[in-house]
């Protein structure tokens, strides 16, 4: 059975209340069992192009027969974009080298098998039987301080560069992608989102929204709450429900 028949999904992005431009991009493609959220960085123009290149290149991948082949193709594509953004850009004399990069979180589904591939702090959450699980682990200094220096979340969050990314597509010569493979169950709801959304909402709000019966309802609730706050960053989410 095709993924399309099993999964309902919807994506939404919003510029927020403070930023001048939206550097986020997403892909919502249930018929290929592929969903992507990317959060561009590098400021004016660069970030938006980087996230757009990721989404548009992943959307153009041919539909391969197995999940393993699709995972390989997605990884290869992201490594190529990393090279393109990090090593192949023309630089004008007198202009500092610009960073053109983006976070990415990708979800691939094939039958019961799922794979989540990510770099940066855009996240994948799973809502299953009333519990919320964060499946991706941020590539951020805050996360690194928690894991390597055993800091508490509060201590790590107080670091002046807590939100600095340790991985992103285009940020370094070598990209390290993280991946999690898992099985999905009937009734599962998955959320891909940028930090603009997950920073603005607590776990309780995320869980409440994902417990709604449709992706439309979940997205509506997520954005209603986020936009009722300060919404300092761009907000993007894709909700996938079986």
């Amino acid at each position: 059975m095709s993924a399309e028949a099993l999964w309902r999904s919807l994506g939404r992005t919003d510029i927020g209340k403070v930023r001048e431009s939206n550097e986020d991009a997403f892909l919502d493609c249930p018929e290929h069992g592929l969903w992507v959220v990317a959060d561009g960085m590098g400021g004016y123009e660069c970030g938006g192009l980087a996230s757009q290149l990721i989404v548009s290149s992943l959307a153009a991948l041919p539909l391969l027969p197995s999940l393993d082949e699709r995972v390989k193709a997605v990884r290869q594509c992201l490594h190529w974009i990393n090279r393109r953004l990090n090593q192949e850009l023309t630089v004008a004399q007198g202009h500092a080298e610009r960073i053109m990069g983006s976070t990415v979180v990708t979800l691939l589904l094939e039958g019961r098998r799922a794979a989540c591939i990510w770099a940066g702090d855009s996240r994948c959450y799973l809502w299953r039987e009333g519990c919320l699980y964060q499946l991706s682990r941020d590539h951020s200094l805050q996360q690194q301080l928690i894991e390597q220096q055993q800091m508490s979340i509060e201590q790590a969050r107080a670091h002046p560069s807590a939100s600095a990314l340790t991985q992103a597509v285009g940020a370094r010569a070598q990209l390290t992608l993280d991946m999690l493979e898992f099985n999905v169950c009937p009734g599962d709801t998955l959320l891909l989102c940028t930090d603009g959304l997950h920073q603005a909402l607590g776990c309780e709000v995320l869980g409440n929204a994902l417990s709604r019966s449709t992706p439309q309802g979940a997205l509506q609730q997520l954005f209603d709450v986020a936009l009722s706050g300060r919404a300092q960053d761009n907000l993007t989410a894709v909700v996938i429900r079986r």
Binding site: R12, T13, S21, A25, F26, L27, D28, Y44, G48, V55
Partner: peptide
């Protein structure tokens, strides 16, 4: 089999 443009959501090309 190509992903439709409406499934890809990005900011306009120039800001």
């Amino acid at each position: 089999a190509f992903v439709g443009a409406d499934q890809v959501q990005c900011a306009p090309a120039s800001v």
